[in-house]
Structures are given as C-alpha cells and as structure tokens.
C-alpha cells in the first residue's frame, strides 16, 4: 500500500511544479508586454484624444447629436410597416433619383432655378405679350417639353385610377364577340292578332261592359258622371281585369274623380300619378294596361285626352 502512494504523490508534485513554472513564465512575459506597451498605449491615447478634440472643434459631435435627435423623431413618427413599404419602393425611388441627376436634366433644372431666383428682374406680360413671346424658338420648345410632361403625368394618373377608357381600349383590342342569342324573340304574329284595320275597330269597338242600372256610352264610359257610386266601381272593376279594389285603387279613384269634378276634365296618367302621390310605376301596376282609360271607366269619368 505504501509503495504506489509516494510514486503518485511525487508525480503530482512534479506536475504541479511544472505548472507553476509555466505560470511564472507567463507572468513574466505579461509583465514585459505591459512594460513595452505602456508608452505605446500612452501615445495612442494621446493621439486619440487629440483627434477627438479636433473632431469636437470641427462640430462633428454636435452634428452627431443633432442627427441622433432627428433619427429619434423619424423613428417615433413612422412605424416599421412604413419602412417596409419604403423598401418596396426604394428601387423606383432610386431610378427617379438617377433620372433626375442626369446631367441634361440637372442643367435644365439649374436653368429653371436660376430664372426663378432672378424672377424679380422680369417684366410682367399680359395675354398679348405671352402670344408675342411664344414666337421665340426656345419658348416654343419649352412649351412642347412641358406639354409632354403634362401628358405623361395625365397618363400615369389615369393608370393609377383604373381609367374606364383603358378598359374600353382593352375591349376594342380583344376579338369582337357576337351575342350568343338574340336579345329577345317575340313569337311571330299569332292568329287573331289585330291587323291595322282591325286595330282601328278595337278602339271604336262597342264595349261589352254590363252594369245593371247604369247607362254607358259606346266605349264603356259612364254616360252621366254624376250618377256614379262606389258600388258602380266594384261592379265594373272585375269586368276590366281588376279583381279587387285595394286602398291604393280607391285613393286613385277618389283623386281623379275629385280632379274631374273640379276641372271638368279627366286627368291624364301623369296627373293621376302626381296627384294621388303614388307615382307612375304604381299606377301602371294597379291599373295595368291603359291605366288612364281603365281608371276613368271605373271612376265613372270621361276618357282622358292628351298626349302626356
């Protein structure tokens, strides 16, 4: 038991002493390094601080502080999304910048700004003066350039709003389509359809309205409007295709009777619509075809005349 122990112990001590030596060596090296680098560091610090002081004198730090403030304002005003969107446009922005900084464009801009700068030396011109000035070649060229600019701006703005004219142009360029089927086909004349002679007969055809106790004229209108009763209306309406007289029907009937008794003339469809307050569409729905005559028959007043 005692035999291996002193071997390992000795070995350990040897190893330790070796390590210590290494450490000391290192320490010494570091010490030398520090000694040598001392003056160098000192010189560097000196130069560094001089340089920084110089920068401060020249205003770099003030500028930097102001820039940081500006950056702070930008960051707090815009969100990350805005920066992303800017990124999307950055290529076209750079293109525009490149175009604007072309030498010829810059020259034009310089000329224009020079003139604007010296604008106070120009004399005012009226309409006639403008016409006279436009005879100058340069002025004419300038006008052409500006008009062309306007045209491009207009084109761009039309593209931006999805101008319907652009869509129409696309439709013109696309192949023309015939309608697949005709719009609407009515059946050709059915038997019994009135010819022109027969149509005239219809207008003058004796009416077949029958209302017991009341005298009617040849076309089915009440001979004497004063003999009208509400019962008459309820008897006549079904024979004219109106099964039931609703409140709206009665509103119209009362209105037109009132107008007839007041004016001595039966109102036309337009007056019926406005006086009853129901509107033309409702009149045609309530009294179907030829509402003026149909309502007049029901209300016991003469047939309305007039074109409107």
């Amino acid at each position: 038991m005692n035999a291996p122990a002193p071997v390992t112990l000795e070995a350990k001590v040897d190893a330790l002493s070796l390590k210590l030596d290494l450490l000391l060596e290192r320490q010494r090296a570091v010490g030398e390094l520090m000694d040598e680098s001392g003056p160098i560091l000192h010189a560097v610090m000196q130069a560094g601080t001089t340089q920084l002081a110089d920068l401060e004198d020249r205003g770099y730090f003030d500028f930097g502080r102001a820039t940081l403030r500006l950056l702070d304002r930008i960051v707090s005003s815009y969100s990350a999304d805005d920066v992303d969107q800017l990124g999307d446009a950055v290529v076209s922005i750079l293109d525009t910048v490149r175009n604007v900084t072309q030498p010829d464009v810059l020259a034009m801009a310089n000329e224009a700004t020079d003139v604007l700068h010296n604008a106070d030396t120009l004399k005012p011109v009226g309409v006639m003066g403008a016409l006279k000035k436009s005879r100058d070649d340069d002025v004419q060229r300038g006008i052409a350039v500006l008009l062309e600019v306007l045209r491009h701006v207009g084109k761009a703005s039309a593209a931006a709003t999805g101008d319907p004219k652009q869509r129409k142009l696309a439709r013109h360029l696309a192949p023309r389509k015939r309608r697949a089927a005709p719009l609407r086909r009515r059946a050709p004349s059915a038997p019994g359809r009135p010819t022109s002679e027969a149509a005239c007969e219809l207008v003058k055809a004796p009416s077949t309205l029958v209302v017991p106790g009341f005298a009617l004229d040849a076309q089915g209108f009440l001979a004497d409007p004063q003999t009208w009763t509400r019962e008459y209306a309820t008897l006549v309406a079904p024979q004219l295709g109106i099964e039931e007289l609703t409140d709206d029907h009665w509103t119209v009937i009362d209105t037109i009777r009132g107008l007839y008794l007041e004016n001595g003339k039966s109102p036309n469809v337009r007056k019926m619509a406005t006086a009853s307050g129901l509107g033309t569409g409702a009149i045609y729905t309530l009294f179907k075809k030829a509402p003026g005559s149909r309502a007049a028959r029901i209300a016991g007043i003469p047939k309305p005349v007039g074109c409107i």
């Binding site: 009515r186 059946a187 004349s189 059915a190 019994g192 359809r193 009135p194 149509a199 219809l202 055809a205 009416s207 077949t208 309205l209 089915g220 024979q239 004219l240 295709g241 075809k289 030829a290 005559s293 149909r294």
Partner: peptide, 12 residues
C-alpha cells in the same frame, strides 16, 4: 280596353 285581353298586344 277589355276588348284587348289577348296577350299579343301591339308593339312599337
């Protein structure tokens, strides 16, 4: 115009 009850009325 009850005499004009057929559907194929005049068309203009």
């Amino acid at each position: 115009m009850q005499t004009q009850t057929h559907e194929d009325a005049r068309r203009v």
